[in-house]
Design a protein around this nucleic acid. Structure first.
Lengths: 275, 275
DNA sequence: CAAAATACGTAACATACGATACAGCGCTCC
DNA sequence: GGAGCGCTGTATCGTATGTTACGTATTTTG
């Protein structure tokens, strides 16, 4: 049963020619506002001609453009009157595949942040913003992208940020550059990697401050860590979700950015001018 | 400070003549839908003549009727995009000071999935699970980690998954391996990277099916993409958040895993035994 | 590889829409 | 009670908008 236009589009987008598909995608991207504007504006936004928009609308089963718009408006009106139904994409009747996943992920985030105090985040952010030392980041098999992501952002606002990539022997040797004033950010969730544990231990012995992103069962690295962030990772799936940790990482990036606002802004301007 | 048209009307309704007041009340009664319809419909609903509607609109300070409508639409769009401003989000139970960052991120996810149907995700998952071709993944400056993350997971459950890393010249040459049966997953959010656009175009010309992860403003690559996922990226910060896209990526990984359950399980067992 | 079919845009067209001019009506204030 | 003013609707006009016809480009099929 198809109850709204968005679903209708999703249902038929597969049978559409390229240009009409572009129209469909443009509409979905800012649903449903573009559809309330004129054909000319719609076509310009989608980068196609007006007849294509009209053909697209006709393919959806409408007699003409105004009828299509009325339908969108009715839908909007219904939606506005009962905000409760705003959980659009109705709880997919039957074998709902998406919702449980998303729900679990959102729960994970709420739960993760519930166990995370503002103070803790502020402390870590202050540590990362403290520019007397260097910042190293590293992750495990599936979490290394998180380390990269964080490194990419931190590197924009401050110098001396290094992502440790490549083979174990490569980054193991970087230990020699690390000291008391430096920070090592490690991402490690189940199954915890021995190589990372060993690396963390060595770094710890050299006095490096370790910030650990892990799951709720805590990687053994927690022993050596100055700060531990335990994220929820459980989702209805065979593997673990890193989404909560990702959001914590973004939150930290935001906090650090704010602390370094002054110099950060200057830095960003400089970078722009280097392009 | 008057921020929306409803307030504006409430402010001036006292100074209006009878008929215009009727227009105002009619609009408020089913705000803002009537205002999006034609002057004729509006006037009929209010039981006044069309010139009265136009005078009413003029009195609110608009030059003409279309301008008034655009203003209403903008307002509506803003409202739809930040559900937080609607009082339906229980202000974080427990009264803890949750960072606005987290709130924005959660909103982004809800909003992103609101524009994303199960069908769409299922289609993309089916495409990715279809093992007649290869899967390539690539991302931009800040989104490449997402490509890596997805690649790492997909590679566990199926062969022929390649993350395109390193210098542009490196992955550009990989084009020669790509054909009609292959899928290219691209992550590209503002500021869109020229190199990626060029790459996507070339791949498209070779018949490669492109799955694009982008922001709500749509990377130019959308032109060439078979499937477009538009995630919300706005957070109270200087940069854009990729969290919503991350979650979509995880959801897709989950869907693909489920589709390949049978062979996937076998594959994972094999891998385990290789350790 | 040729031929047919489909997709797409340009440009001309018709109409429905917003805008305006004007006249009638009621109200207020000398 | 009459003159003036403001409010409102009817009728008309110009135009922006949706629509359609047609030619070219592209893809598909035999």
């Amino acid at each position: 049963m198809i109850s709204n236009i968005a679903e209708l589009i999703a249902d038929r987008i597969g049978t559409m020619p390229a240009s009409e598909r572009r129209a469909a995608q443009t509409l979905i991207a800012s649903y449903p506002m573009i559809g309330l504007k004129t054909v000319a504006e719609f076509s310009a936004a989608a980068g196609v001609s007006s007849p294509t928009i009209l053909r697209f609308v006709a393919r959806l089963g409408f007699q003409n453009y105004p009828e299509f718009q009325s339908s969108l408006q009715d839908e909007l009106a219904a939606q506005l009157q009962s905000p409760a139904t705003r959980t659009l994409n109705p709880p997919s009747p039957g074998g709902g595949t998406v919702s449980p996943m998303l729900e679990a992920t959102l729960d994970n985030m709420r739960e993760t942040f519930r166990h995370l105090s503002d103070k803790q985040l502020a402390d870590i952010a202050a540590r990362l913003a403290d520019r007397r030392g260097k910042t190293f980041l590293i992750g495990g098999r599936f979490t290394d992208p998180l380390a990269r992501y964080m490194a990419a952002h931190l590197a924009v606002i401050q110098p001396d940020v290094f992502h440790l990539a490549g083979q174990e022997s490569m980054w193991r040797d970087r230990l020699i550059d690390m000291g008391k004033r430096d920070v090592l950010v490690i991402f490690d969730i189940r199954r915890y990697q021995d190589s990372l544990v060993r690396f963390a231990e060595k770094a710890h012995q050299r006095g490096v401050q370790i910030v650990l992103f892990t799951d709720q069962w805590l990687s053994p690295i927690a022993r050596f860590a100055r700060h531990v962030i335990a994220g929820r990772t459980a989702v209805p799936s065979a593997w673990d979700s890193s989404a909560a940790l990702f959001v914590v990482a973004e939150t930290l990036i935001g906090a650090v950015t704010r602390q370094l606002e002054a110099e950060g802004a200057k830095r960003i301007r400089e970078m722009e001018s280097l392009r």
